[in-house]
């Protein structure tokens, strides 16, 4: 969804730091069930951060694409059918929008907004390769770091390939707006060879990995090092503490 190009100070941060900050925002939004807190988080923390990092546009774009439709449906459905609805907020003919329902929809929507915008800060400034590397440096086993990196690398290409095949099928008469059966029939010839070739490829890849001492029992090193300044570690600790405090507040107060 994002194309993280070098530039901006957020790009140079350790991905783990950005990940912790994003997760902290999201957890705070869920632990403190008040739309005002979430809205505050968005306006006073996420938005300024994105402005500072120069990624406001892609971030807002993602929110518009993902959160806006969800919020729209939520407002209508919850507004009309919220079970605890008592105070009417709006009457439109026979329809009644309940205030309680709208408030609930608002809370959920703001949380979704936090979720998407907070992750945008991480994802719009971090190339997938760097994220996988950082996770390995932070202690993710090299085997799983490999899985993550390989999938991240292969997916864009595979999606491209799928589209090309689809286009070829269209040229041969498949109509995407055609009948359900016709479209369903178009999928199987794409799916079956894809899976068969995958099994064979996995076998060959495994040999290639063995020849590169994959899982040799030694703790692997990494070719590149991702910088991790002391400040960043402090920030990560702070994020943890903040979430912990919110959790305690939620449980006991």
């Amino acid at each position: 969804m994002f194309d993280a190009a070098p530039g901006g100070w957020l790009y140079h941060l350790n991905p783990l730091t950005k990940l912790s900050v994003s997760l902290a925002f999201i957890l705070l939004a869920f632990l403190l069930p008040s739309p005002l807190v979430s809205l505050g988080l968005f306006c006073l923390a996420i938005l300024p951060l994105s402005l500072w990092g120069g990624i406001t546009l892609p971030m807002l774009n993602a929110c518009l694409r993902l959160v806006a439709p969800a919020a729209g449906v939520l407002l209508v459905v919850q507004g009309l059918f919220y079970p605890g609805g008592q105070t009417a907020a709006l009457r439109a003919g026979p329809l009644v929008f309940w205030q309680e329902g709208l408030a609930y929809a608002g809370l959920i929507s703001v949380r979704l907004l936090i979720m998407v915008s907070a992750f945008s800060i991480l994802l719009a400034t971090t190339p997938p390769a760097k994220l996988a590397m950082a996770l390995q440096q932070a202690g993710l086993p090299a085997t799983f770091a490999y899985v993550l990196a390989a999938a991240l690398q292969l997916l864009p290409e595979a999606r491209q390939r799928a589209l090309v095949i689809l286009k070829a099928q269209r040229a041969r008469g498949l109509r995407v707006s055609g009948s359900l059966l016709a479209r369903a029939r178009a999928v199987l010839p794409l799916v079956v060879p894809m899976i068969s070739s995958t099994l064979v490829m996995a076998e060959e890849r495994a040999v290639a990995l063995e020849l590169r001492a994959f899982r040799s029992g030694v703790k692997p090193t990494t070719y590149y090092e991702i910088e991790d300044a002391g400040v960043e570690r402090t920030v990560r600790w702070l994020c943890g503490l903040l979430v912990l405090a919110a959790g305690i507040y939620r449980l006991w107060l």
């Binding site: 085997t143 899985v147 999938a151 997916l155 799928a162 589209l163 995407v176």
Partner: peptide, 29 residues
Amino acid sequence: FNTVTFALIPLAIVINLAIGYLVSVLALP
């Protein structure tokens, strides 16, 4: 979790997401 498994998992992930994408492009239910 032998080496073949680790070689297969990324490919399987790609299958999940690529076919999921294809199906959504075709608007199948």
